[in-house]
Design a protein around this nucleic acid. Structure first.
Length: 505
DNA sequence: AAAAAAC
């Protein structure tokens, strides 16, 4: 079996790899590192979780040992589809480049230009970018691409999905054709193959077995649910509580709005929960991810921004609150658990209108997924108290609220915002959600202590409009307490303590 | 039926 020491990496790199505890390269690493060190182009077909990142980071570090960066002329350039992925690659450079004195610049949106610009000025050995921010810097004349020796295009199929290919082509044209290009994609549809043909010269093709389906260590179940959101949320809560060995979990929704809604609901029900989606400001995104990784929050409600590539080790459970529309995404989502041979569990809530997507998933993974409690045909009738068209909202709201307060014995009145926001939240919440909240609950009375924060809820619950408002909201952040509605996960003036900690880190 | 990404 191949050892890292046999791949031709420099001593500096090898010792960092050893310090990180690795001796045996993964197949993509063993296949890609030697030709990359020979300055060959690479066509790497590999999914995340296969060690793909190190397969370009390690040889790049070795190659970068010769030569120095000049001001505004980066020596290498890595393109990533999402900010989190870019940040993660940067972490890899820190980890494996600890014996080097390289200048690494992370150019992503959502954060200030100034620091990025200072790094460019100093001369960057490695630029790790999302396409938009890179082009922004370039258009401001802060950057010359003519010194780039190595170009990495990561997650090319996802870049295609996201419409980044024109940007990628534009960037590639700015870089001398004498460059070395490392091109990675999880899949090779014809468009990607065409792209690869254009970008690569006589590449070494390295393909590792697709995690075609899902790791065999992951238990997969479908769970029949009614389509109403509040009923799905109730099913989800029961499901979460029924798990004996839930260490932490990612809960996927298809839409940002639903991420926001579900997060608020779980938070209100006392779960230790965070949220992650692309319309949140970057600081919150980073803080949420860090806190989830550190175990400060147990549940992370996320859009597909978290489905691929993010290296969150050791997630015990994945819940699909929504069935993904593209079966491929199911594989990626489920791939967040059961990593590195560990066991994991996944549950997918399926409603009647999802059935064709559920079928497509079974077809893709080549196996039938067991239903947890009978299939859709055995679905019980919708719960009666959940009629969302009751007219006497105002009165009932108060009644419900009263019961809610009584239920916990102490009424949670230690939270200054609690009674103040109750009505405004109920106003925009389906009545049923309030009714549902008075059902006896096991877990929640000790809630609210979990994150050491309070007051998160004194924002009016207007998540329905949040997704639409959000871009405007981002620009008007200073005045968003007026009437734009919150960002889906705005904290307003009340920033939870744990986020302040992460912000400093 | 979506999400992701520049200000």
């Amino acid at each position: 079996m191949t050892n890292f020491a046999d791949l031709g990496l420099s001593q500096k790199v090898l010792s960092a790899v050893t310090d990180a505890g690795y001796t045996i390269p993964t197949p993509i690493q063993a296949g890609a590192i030697p030709p990359a060190l020979q300055r060959r182009d690479i066509l790497g077909i590999a999914q995340t979780g296969t060690g793909k990142t190190a397969s370009f980071v390690l040889p790049m570090l070795t190659l970068l040992e010769k030569g120095r960066a000049r001001a505004r002329m980066p020596r290498t350039l890595i393109l990533e589809p999402t900010r989190e992925l870019a940040a993660q690659v940067a972490e890899n450079f820190d980890k494996y480049g600890k014996n080097h004195k390289l200048n690494i610049a992370l150019l992503i949106g959502g954060v200030s230009f100034d620091e990025q610009d200072r790094k460019l000025e100093r001369g960057a050995d490695v630029l790790i970018c999302t396409p938009g921010r890179l082009l922004d810097h370039f258009e401001r004349g802060k950057l010359l691409m003519s010194g780039v020796e190595i170009l990495v295009i990561d997650e090319a199929d996802r870049m295609l999905d996201m419409g980044f290919i024109p940007d990628i082509e534009r960037i590639a044209k700015l870089i001398p054709f004498t460059r070395q290009t490392l091109f990675f994609s999880a899949t090779m549809p014809p468009e990607i193959q065409k792209l690869a043909d254009r970008f690569l010269q006589n590449p070494e093709r390295v393909e590792v077995a697709r995690r075609s389906s899902t790791a065999t260590t992951v238990t997969q179940r479908f769970v029949a649910a009614h389509a109403k959101d509040y009923e799905k949320r109730a099913v989800l809560r029961d499901l979460i509580r029924a798990q004996d060995e839930l260490k932490n979990a990612i809960i996927f929704c298809n839409r940002k709005k639903d991420v926001a809604d579900l997060f608020r609901s779980l938070d209100r029900h006392g779960f230790s929960v965070g949220a992650l989606h692309g319309d949140m400001d970057q600081r919150s995104r980073m803080a949420m991810l860090a806190n989830f990784k550190d175990g400060n929050i147990k549940l992370l409600v996320a859009s597909d921004v978290a489905a691929r590539g993010l290296d969150i080790p050791d997630v015990s459970h994945v819940f699909n609150f929504d069935v993904p529309i593209h079966a491929e995404d199911y594989v990626h989502r489920i791939g967040r658990t059961g990593r590195a041979g560990r066991s994991g569990a996944s549950f997918t809530l399926v409603t009647k209108r999802d059935i064709k997507f559920a079928d497509a998933i079974e077809k893709l993974i080549g196996q039938e997924v067991e239903w947890l409690n009978g299939d859709l045909s055995e679905l019980p009738e919708p719960m009666e108290s959940h009629d969302p068209v009751r007219k006497d909202r105002g009165r009932d709201r108060h009644k419900d609220r009263k019961k809610d307060v009584e239920r916990s014995g102490r009424g949670r009145s230690d939270h200054r915002s609690d009674t103040a926001h109750a009505d405004s939240a109920a106003e925009l919440e389906p009545v049923a959600e309030r009714a549902e909240a008075v059902k006896p609950e096991r877990n929640e009375d000790n809630g609210r202590a979990h994150n050491g924060h309070n007051g998160r809820n004194d924002r009016p619950g207007r998540a329905q409009n949040a997704a639409n408002d959000d871009n405007r909201d981002r620009r008007n952040r200073h005045r968003r307490d007026h009437d734009d509605g919150p960002t889906p996960i705005g904290f307003g003036d009340d920033i939870p303590a744990f986020m302040l900690i992460a912000g400093k880190a």
